[in-house]
Amino acid sequence: MATEAHEEGTGLVFHPLDQFIVKPLFGDGPIHWYTITNATLWMALSVVAIVALFVLGSRGRAIIPTRTQSIGELIYGFTYKMVEDVAGKDAIKFFPYVLTLFMFVLFSNYLGLLPMSFATTSHIAVTAVLAMAVFLTVTIVGFVKNGSKFLGLFWVSSAPLALRPILAVIELISYFVRPVSHSIRLGGNIMAGHAVMKVFAGFAAVAVISPVSVGAISAIYGLEMLVAGVQAYVFTILTCVYLKDALHPGH
């Protein structure tokens, strides 16, 4: 999406959210569930990037790694250690799942930062599916592993008896708010960053303040590089924290 700020008569016009519009890649028809859209394109590109990094990069199986392979090994080791440290040793079997989420979010965030690109993770639909996947996994795993003891997560046995029902209600609400905050945190961060950049880009149409505007875009871009990585990390580590709750529900 090109910058949407174009002079209309006297004032500036901002369309900071137009960059998030999902539209068909070929033709101009309605969007069915199977239509190939720009969202599809950028998801496919993230798949290509992940496959290039992990599958093509490690095809040498070298003891002394090439550069690409060593990046893949670093990410592997980082995520493995995170799952092991935060969620516990018995959460290792969820490692491929966590790595999939981490890689998709990380690559979508960074690919979304390319100029003219489409940020798939800025859409609530996408992040909500990711968060609901985590939520359902955690809930199902919790009940399968611990049975009714999983409900002990809401029954704070260390609190005074009179307080426990109130705490249980609060814990229950906070448990069901998890997927909401989990998804909106990621989507909102990415959307906010892109919208702010687009607003500054709109100001660049005025000749007098355009240098300031370009400088501000550069600064925000740097911040967004950080935010993209941190949000992917936070999404993953919260997944690990929730997994720990599912595997060890005791407080």
Binding site: D85, S181, I184, R185, G188, A192, V230, V234, I237
Partner: peptide
């Protein structure tokens, strides 16, 4: 550091809500 990032994420999420 993991706890730090979780804390920052929780604090920032609420700001993002208001932005939303």
């Amino acid at each position: 550091t993991a706890t730090l990032f979780i804390g920052i994420a929780f604090a920032e999420a609420l700001g993002i809500f208001s932005f939303l």
